[in-house]
Amino acid sequence: MNITLKVWKQRNKDERGRFETYQVQDVSEDMSFLEMFDVLNERLINEGKDPVAFDHDCREGICGACSMYINGRPHGPLQGVTTCQLHMRSFKDGDTIVVEPWRSAAFPVIKDLAVDRSSFDRIMAAGGFVSVNTGNAQDANSILIPKDDADKAFEAAACIGCGACVAACKKFFCYAIRFSKSIAAFIVASGKGRKA
């Protein structure tokens, strides 16, 4: 399949960015979205042009590094699927795909599609954890956790910290801060409870 890409190119956080149009030919539908970018970048490097900078790490859907805003949605058209697990079969031959970085003031652009997500680290450092010596761990079965709390805890644990929520919703960042603080408060409270 042949794809037209409109990709956000920006040299650094201070310079103005713009959309650049690229044609990518002979794309296999089994390629992941990132592999399609690998093919494009290999070609750009061979032509002596500047490749498109983007973040990636595990490429198996668990690290959350592949932050791409695809056709107006973080991680593209599928539900609960990161960009690296999005395959070209989700698109049609001849499609034009618009790719932007995470769009949020909290995530300044480093280059092209790569953004600085250290604001998330600052939230965690500000109170997302606590170190309390509580002695030996109690048998987990003897601590009853209400189902609602357990479900909320699981939701927090399932987050891979990719930042899509912030990119999608400008207000979410405020919620994220409030949410992490309430978790911290919960941990502190339960730690104290156990000590007593």
Binding site: E29, D30, L78, V81, Q85, H87, R89
Partner: peptide, 8 residues
Amino acid sequence: MYKQITGV
């Protein structure tokens, strides 16, 4: 997960 990756 398998279907997501392979389309099969």
